[in-house]
């Protein structure tokens, strides 16, 4: 494990927080890869928690985390100077070397890996359209930040902000040579139907996060695949979700 130092913890909107960790060295994570964060030394919560990289700059790793249960609640109470043990970067990230025009779909907390991906695509000079989906207006975050990287379209389930509907309602008017998605399962199923070659980032409960326990599996065209080791990014045509 790597001992990181908490640099800052900031609330983002009503449901999330951003945590910056100083890893002392540049770990060069690939967009879509994740880290396992150790919550405490008490064995409870028992599992380390997986979070994909929201942003990374030199020694600093940034994670966007939704406060949902005991693990995330405990992490949200970290303060600057705390030591946090992490493992990573782990798993397979997005592949985008030859992409020129990219379409990114992000639903809810699924925006986390997409932001780091969008930044890297922008660095490569890629033209980017970003489709963000949220439950309602209260949950809309990072619209402006994504707008600095490409053209942004926002959907809310109840229509309380921008377009009413979900990200799969976005009308395709251009050709894209790279489609990327992260979000809830129903959203990813819809993306799977529209884009056979999309790269989708899946979520699962990870016990080991190392490909050892076979606990986090998803059905794939070649049997069960490990989300933590064979993914979390899969080709949409390879997994049955």
């Amino acid at each position: 494990m790597i001992d990181t130092t908490v640099v800052s913890v900031k609330r983002v909107g009503n449901f999330h927080f951003l945590i910056d960790l100083d890893a002392k060295v540049n770990l060069n994570p690939i967009p879509g890869q994740f880290f396992m964060l150790k919550i405490n030394d008490l064995n409870d919560p028992f599992f380390m928690r997986p979070f994909s990289v929201f942003d990374a700059d030199k020694n600093i790793l940034r994670f966007l985390i939704e406060i949902k249960g005991n693990g995330t609640k405990t992490l949200s109470r970290s303060t600057a100077g705390d030591i946090l043990k992490v493992r990573g970067p782990l798993g397979n990230g997005f592949q985008f070397d030859n992409v020129k025009k990219a379409l990114l779909y992000a639903g809810g907390t699924g925006i986390a890996p997409m932001f780091y991906l969008a930044k890297n695509l922008k660095k490569n000079g890629v033209e980017i359209d970003v489709i963000l989906g949220f439950r309602n207006k209260d949950r809309v975050i990072y619209e402006d930040s994504f707008a600095e990287l490409g053209e942004v379209f926002v959907y809310t389930d109840d229509g309380s902000y921008r377009e009413k509907g979900n990200v799969a309602d976005f009308v395709l008017k251009k050709e894209y040579d790279g489609v990327f998605a992260c979000g809830p399962v129903p959203m990813l199923k819809a993306i799977q139907r529209r884009h056979k070659n999309a790269q989708i980032s899946l979520e699962s409960v990870f016990a080991c996060g190392a490909g050892a326990c076979m606990g986090c599996v998803v059905k794939s065209v070649s049997g069960y695949a490990r989300v933590c080791k064979d993914g979390p990014v899969f080709s949409a045509k390879d997994v049955i979700i």
């Binding site: 409870d44 028992f46 409960v205 016990a207 606990g215 986090c216 599996v217 069960y224």
Partner: peptide
């Protein structure tokens, strides 16, 4: 799946 779940 699900194949694992946390316990105390």
């Amino acid at each position: 799946p699900p194949r694992t779940v946390e316990t105390p």
